[in-house]
């Protein structure tokens, strides 16, 4: 059980409310908490969307079915009834993501090394060693915010976002690491690329990542990258 005082509630447009978590959680705990709340409120009658960010939940309601105050009550109830995860036990299954670091696959690797004063090997080791959790999904189909990222690797976004980031790009920004599932514009520092398709609309389950998924990166070389790319059409 949590307390509604842990949240700040705000109206967001005619059919929306936003709840922001005011507790001083780390991003993984906070992300899993707000996702659990969003999951609890989403199936309620008249709720058309429940979207978890890193520390917030936005709902949208059908205002022909539900009064704004009743929608707020559903959101408040979900925040009250959902326990804050005090122990973020990783699930049994871990998804391994092979990554070719640096070179054309990771155009920002050198600049990240310079900013963090790490050698390439140290950086790869620090990025690929720890297990991560998917904190939340969003921005684009298949994009996952993962953490926690080693403090030594925490650097800001690029001053000027790239117009186009290749699909499969593995990137870091602030306290997060993430993988671009699709070619898109992007402002994160790109350190590598995975040949694994993260989103495929034609697959029975199109999305590889869900909030809470455990992820382990594994450094691979160019040869293995090419081989794995061939296996995945």
């Amino acid at each position: 059980m949590s307390n509604t005082n842990d949240f700040e509630f705000m109206r967001f447009g005619e059919r929306g409310w936003l709840a922001t978590c005011m507790r001083d959680f780390d991003d993984v705990t906070s992300g899993l908490f707000v996702n659990a709340i969003a999951d609890a409120v989403r199936p309620k009658n008249g709720i058309t969307d429940a979207i978890a960010g890193i520390d917030s939940i936005a709902i949208r309601f059908d205002n022909t079915q539900l009064d704004a105050n009743d929608a707020l009550k559903l959101l408040k109830d979900a925040t009250k009834k959902t326990a804050a995860p005090n122990d973020t036990q990783p699930p049994d299954k871990t998804i391994e993501i092979p990554v070719l670091y640096g070179g054309d696959a990771g155009p920002d690797l050198e600049s990240v090394c310079a900013q963090t004063k790490l050698t390439t090997d140290q950086l790869i080791n620090k990025h690929a060693s720890p297990p991560y959790r998917v904190i939340t999904v969003g921005f684009a189909p298949g994009f996952a915010y993962m953490g926690p990222l080693d403090k030594a690797l925490q650097i800001p976004r690029l001053a000027t976002p790239r117009a186009r980031v290749a699909a499969g790009s593995v990137a870091i920004a602030g306290g997060f690491t993430g993988v671009y599932a699709l070619p898109s514009p992007g402002g994160w520092n790109i350190i590598g690329r995975t040949p694994v398709p993260l989103f495929d609309a034609a697959r029975p389950s199109p999305f590889l990542f869900k909030p809470g998924t455990a992820v382990q990166f594994r450094p691979i070389d160019e040869t293995e990258f090419q081989e794995l790319s061939k296996q995945t059409p």
Partner: peptide, 9 residues
């Protein structure tokens, strides 16, 4: 401070 990613519509 930099915002944490949150919903837009």
């Amino acid at each position: 401070p930099p915002m944490k990613s949150s919903a837009v519509f």
